[in-house]
Simulated scan of single mutants.
Amino acid sequence: MDIKEFCLAHGFDMSKCAVASGGGSFGMTELKISPIEFLTLAEDDFERGGLSALVNATTNVKRAIVGQLDQLLISFGYPSLRWNVPKKIERLRALGLLAPRLLRKIVDMRNILEHEYATPELEKVEEALDIASLFVMSASAMFIPFDDVLEFSLPDQDATDSSVTRITVGLNRESDRVFYTVYAYEPGEYAGRCVGQCEIQSGHVLFEAMVKLSASLMLRYKVNQALNDFDAAYAQL
């Protein structure tokens, strides 16, 4: 049963709900060489100076940024290692995991990311290093830890028309997939009685809207926009 059928079966309209986030056990997938390690190598190369060091710094800046793009996407179940940089950025945009200004800077860096044989300029390498540092550090900070639970609850006036008054969604990772598990609850003592569950797989339009909503609630940044995007995604189902 998909999420739309699940909500219809329980008479629950997620677009009418109040939303809260919580949890915090969902971390990023570890890579063999972390983006921070590539960033450290790039900084060491830049400090050493000279053409050879600048070339190495450029390469390691690219690896740090692309590695961070991949680490975020792989953490949420996307096979991004096969994707080009624009596709990686587009998916992170949909997930709400890049601040717009930082996103624009990374898009502007595509020349340094995609043209490997140009002679690097000192100023551009320094700027790229600054952007890479900001990106890698901000991504790491978001996952200490990432809020992996959303709770949708109906207002009192709407709850009287539905046996289910609360839905929680929890982010899960298994060896071969990432997904949200959705639980529906009827009112009762303590947390109420769970009356059903379903899953939302990585890549689903509502999966992306939920990740974006969690990130916005965590950062308290553009929450209304994230709520509107969630409602729009829900309406597409």
Rank of each mutant, 00 (worst) to 15 (best):
F179G: 00
A209D: 00
E43P: 12
L51A: 01
F146V: 10
N111I: 11
G96P: 08
V178K: 01
L150E: 01
S175A: 11
R101K: 08
G203H: 06
S133W: 12
A20P: 02
D158W: 15
L237S: 05
R101P: 03
E123H: 14
L69Q: 00
D44I: 15
R193W: 12
S80W: 02
P187F: 09
M1N: 11
Y190W: 14
K105T: 03
L81R: 12
Y78N: 00
D130W: 11
R91T: 11
L154A: 04
I167L: 08
E174A: 14
N224D: 13
Y180G: 04
L103D: 01
F46G: 00
L113P: 00
S133V: 14
T165V: 14
R193A: 13
C17D: 02
L150H: 06
L97I: 05
S175K: 05
A128I: 09
S52F: 11
G50P: 03
A20F: 07
F152Q: 02
L217K: 06
D156A: 15
Y117T: 14
Q71M: 08
K105H: 05
I144T: 15
K32W: 08
V66M: 04
L54M: 06
I144N: 12
L81D: 09
G170M: 09
Y78K: 02
T160P: 02
G22Y: 08
A191Y: 12
F26E: 04
L219C: 07
Q68L: 05
G170H: 14
L97M: 07
N84Y: 12
F12M: 06
R101A: 08
I36E: 04
